[in-house]
Amino acid sequence: MYNVAEVNAEACVAQKGCRLCIMYCPEANCIQLDSQNMKAIIVESRCKGCELCVVVCDAAKHNAITMVAR
């Protein structure tokens, strides 16, 4: 079992210009911006499960990312 981040598309506010998780993810090309729907998407094979995106998202009170077991 391995924990990876998952974005709740309804709660994600990337269309308003938020890039917090994309900015602070330590892994390159791991959190991408879906430019059609303007939502953050996680590339699960690159996610190491550090939860930093959850911390920055929760600190901004968006609460759009959770950790799920894979």
Binding site: Y24, C25, P26, E27, A28, N29, R46, K48, G49, C50, E51, L52
Partner: peptide
């Protein structure tokens, strides 16, 4: 920069 082998959450990789 691509998938590297630093620890999860390492500030150095940020």
């Amino acid at each position: 920069i691509a998938e590297h082998s630093l620890c999860a959450g390492c500030p150095e990789s940020i």
